[in-house]
Amino acid sequence: MARNLSMKDAINEALDQEMARDPTVIVMGEDIVGGSGSPGEDDAWGGVLGVTKGLYAKHGDRLIDTPLSESAYIGAAIGASTCGLRPVAELMFLDFMGVCFDQIFNQAAKFRYMFGGKAETPVTIRAMVGAGFRAAAQHSQMLTPIVTHIPGLKVVCPSNAYDAKGLLIQSIRDNDPVIFCEHKNLYAHESDVPEESYTVPFGEANIVREGADATIVAYGLMVHRASEAAEALAKEGIQCEIVDLRTLSPIDIDSVVESVENTGRLICVDEANPRCSIAADVTATLSQEAFGSLKAAPQLVTAPHTPVPFSPALEDLYIPSAEHIVDAVRKTMAP
């Protein structure tokens, strides 16, 4: 039965159900138990924002609080995955990947390729992404383009609780390394989520809203900003179609092409910095694949090419807003 669940609870439920289903699933990371050694739930915070709360009581030592050393435990998770376990490692903030990036991009991402398809690396690395949490420059970045750039990694960034549960279950069951990006400002966002286990496949975008005038491509929190923009534009008679990419690698370019063939206008929204962003990538691909359908120059709506500001006023300006998206759509509509 479906109930209204927050994205945080949906992620927790996915981990719980997969741990119950498959004894090879383990969860590790900094403070994911948060009070290891204490049997009760009182001390077990379940991660900095409580996403893994309650799992220790149910699954015990299959949740491992690790030392504060990303290179050690991300490496351990990747190694364990090549030896028969399905670890889910929490990298807390994706911003911390620098210290363990060799393990991710030069080891995990390469095993299947370098061992002639004989090695599998079924590891999932969960990490928080995104700005708007007043967490300053080192805990607020949208680094999805960096991991998307690496062949051999799969990259997921859900926009809602339903997708988060199904995509996380798919990530855990997948035999390749998956970077699972959780926007911290979406943890409280609620949607209908079935109680049962289910999967959402990789490489299938979700058409959040249909419209004939312009295609807005987004992922993560930006899907909601795009929806606000589309709502405002609908009042003026401009109907936007919103494509939620859901997974950045593999990416469902076909759905974007199909949509742009109908609308003739493309607006790519990305919370990442603009250079080499997902928005830039999608725009470039569409310019090649659907050039003949375009009625106007594609528009990119991204964060500026600066670190994320700590000043709340500046941080709010930094993140692409519904107004920015409305302006970009209007540019494509101008005669």
């Binding site: 339903y162 199904g166 079935p194 049962e196 286990s197 289910y198 999967t199 959402v200 496949p201 979700n206 058409i207 249909e210």
Partner: peptide, 16 residues
């Protein structure tokens, strides 16, 4: 409708 297709996909993707 798109909603009908999406609802059926959600059903089909449940384990079992």
């Amino acid at each position: 409708s798109r909603g009908m297709v999406d609802d059926l996909l959600k059903y089909k993707r449940i384990d079992g």
